[in-house]
Design a protein around this nucleic acid. Structure first.
Lengths: 237, 237
DNA sequence: TCAAAAGTGTTGTAATTACACCCATGT
DNA sequence: ACATGGGTGTAATTACAACACTTTTGA
């Protein structure tokens, strides 16, 4: 704030209303072939106890990005998580008790890393995206927009490091993509397409938990590409 | 507001700050082979007189969509304009005088329809996207995100009705696409690709203003497809 | 007549798809 | 021994890009 004249400030802005602005987080995780969603039972009225997204209010001196990070950190203990803005939701009656404008985010987290205790401490739980309960307010709409945005991102950039363990097999990666796009993909074609991107590094270790033959582990090749380089379409959308 | 107990409401929300929430509109138009941007000289301090996007504050009982429509209508006289949300911009210091969270939109308008008087009445003017002045605050960033979003939309859906007159030639449509994507496209290939979508209807009238031979007019074929059907990639992104 | 846009056709290459098929091994 | 996923190869199809060529007509 550079202006030192409060009167002028009021003159300029005072006639306009102010609003509560919240962030709501669609937290995606991946496990057992299913894209999961972390949901919370709302802790206060109205709609207390019903499932909802993780949310919180934007404070005086933080951006919505910072607010989303803060809320995610405080509630799940997780730090340095990939997040992306979905959109702002602003219908005047979208919440029932007061007018709240919400800026929605989606986050991608690795279920392994994850501290189960701190999740359950709030009564939160993971739900398959295919089998989630109805959510409060307009949170169902937020989830579908978030999923659409995730699909779009995954279609142009390899998502995997964000949702899988450090090292993963190509079958695990395909499982993730099948979960995100809610359809099956040809194993051979998927493998070739993904490897052709040249961003994965093969390790010598093999994973034997999912197949008898064992599959090579892969991880991101750090020195392959600059991080935000366009790597082309991965799956046809 | 369903809650009749103000005390409870304060208890729930009172501890959280409220914010000014504005909408900023990136208004795209198309003329003479160039994608244009409608800019306004800011009418009050700070940064008075510098070029900025059209903006305004969200009122008590309107959504951001409604606010964007209202502001566009009031300032340009235009109604029923295609608009799409870009994103929310929320850095605490993005404006200098007070903290304002902005929800950005882009709008597509036909320059023909357009009432010149009401535009100039505010000192507004059209600028080519390739040659626009620097804007105040973070408006340059908003413009580039809006353009990216427009490009993405145009890559998957035929934009034309929104930015061109009711009837248009395929060369005009190509000119629009070249302006949006800031590169030239092969006339023959563009024509074939667009016609293969099966959403355009050819008229018998010809346009002779742009070529000696004359080119057939086309328009959207209303009963061709349901409006939100996926019509596939139009240009390679 | 000739430049310039309209419109059609052809051709080589790349991407996508749908498979077939062999490999390795835990049960 | 065999079912299961791992991994490679191939062939048909489709999409794309480049560009040649023909048509039309105002200047």
């Amino acid at each position: 704030m550079e202006l030192n004249n409060q009167t002028l400030l009021n003159e300029l802005y005072g006639e306009h209303p102010q609003h509560y602005v919240a962030v709501d987080c669609v937290i995606f995780g991946y496990k057992d072939g299913d894209l999961k969603l972390l949901l919370y039972p709302r802790s206060f009225e109205p709609s207390k106890g019903n499932w909802s997204l993780l949310g919180g209010f934007i404070q005086k001196d933080e951006s919505s990005d910072q607010a989303a990070e803060r809320i995610l950190k405080r509630t799940t203990g997780l730090d340095e998580i990939y997040m992306d803005q979905v959109a702002a939701f602003s219908k005047p009656d979208r919440e029932t008790a007061a007018r709240v404008i919400s800026i929605a985010y989606y986050a991608l987290i690795r279920l392994d890393d994850h501290d189960e205790e701190i999740v359950h401490q709030y009564g939160a739980d993971w739900f398959s995206i295919k089998d989630k309960p109805d959510l409060i307010f307009d949170h169902d709409e937020i989830v579908s927009k978030a999923l659409a945005k995730l699909q779009q991102k995954a279609g142009y950039q390899l998502i995997g490091p964000e949702l899988l363990p450090e090292m993963f097999t190509l079958t695990q990666l395909r499982g993730l993509y099948e979960a995100i796009f809610l359809r099956s993909m040809d194993p051979g074609n998927f493998r070739k397409k993904v490897l052709s991107l040249g961003v994965l590094k093969r390790h010598n270790k093999k994973d034997s938990t999912e197949s008898k033959k064992g599959a090579f582990y892969y991880s991101y090749d750090e020195n392959a590409e600059m991080p935000d380089k366009e790597i082309g379409r991965i799956i046809k959308v």
